[in-house]
């Protein structure tokens, strides 16, 4: 069996980065240099949806040999640690919760954002808008990973302060089903 079929094949990290960059351009469409608000929103949704699909399938692969998670918090922690490491080679830096189904995940130096550096002519707002598109994919990944583990939630991604720091806010709408009695 080749490494490929055993799930142990590797590609260059930049191969994925280039693909991701082009995914964002594709979602923006032909007018990618100066998108309107609605174009940005549409692009956001498309990119997030692709992240969602990938997250669902990826989490299946990453957890197939693990025992079931006992509760939602464990699932979230798994995403912050093992899952994030598999995808971004680092962990989520800070996890906060209000214990009522809302979790805030902070990545102090998200790899994609760390590479974003806007030309000086770009306004700070535009730069942040464009950069924000690049965290829609990880946002979808989280939502997809949760869904794959039975947790239905909404996930939003924001750049509260400065690049390359970003936050993902998870709002659980339906927790994972309890294990069968």
């Amino acid at each position: 069996m080749s490494a490929l079929s055993q799930g142990r094949h590797q590609v260059a990290e930049s191969t994925f980065s280039f693909l991701h960059m082009e995914l964002v351009q594709m979602a923006l469409g032909p007018n990618s240099a100066t998108p309107t608000t609605s174009q940005l929103q549409l692009a956001s949704r498309k990119i997030e949806a692709i992240g969602f699909q990938v997250g669902q399938r990826l989490v299946e692969r990453y957890t197939k040999d693990r025992p079931r998670f006992t509760d939602t918090l464990e699932i979230i922690k798994f995403i912050c640690k093992d899952f994030w490491v598999e995808v971004y080679r680092k962990q989520i830096d800070k996890l906060q919760t209000n214990n009522r189904g809302v979790y805030m995940l902070q990545d102090n130096s998200h790899p994609t954002l760390a590479r974003c550096s806007a030309p000086t002519a770009t306004s700070a707002t535009t730069a942040k808008q464009m950069a924000a598109l690049h965290i829609k994919f990880p946002s979808g990944l989280i939502r997809g990973a949760l869904s794959g583990l039975g947790v239905i939630a909404s996930v939003s991604a924001t750049i509260e302060s400065e690049l390359p720091r970003c936050q993902f806010t998870i709002k659980i709408t339906a927790p994972s089903a309890p294990p069968p009695a």
Binding site: R8, H9, F16, E86
Partner: peptide, 24 residues
């Protein structure tokens, strides 16, 4: 050259590619 670059598991890449094709 391959030994010097940062590598990731190809699943992330191939699943993303597949999702892009599906979207297209």
């Amino acid at each position: 050259a391959f030994s010097k670059v940062e590598k990731i598991n190809s699943e992330l890449f191939s699943l993303t590619y597949g999702a892009i094709v599906t979207q297209l």
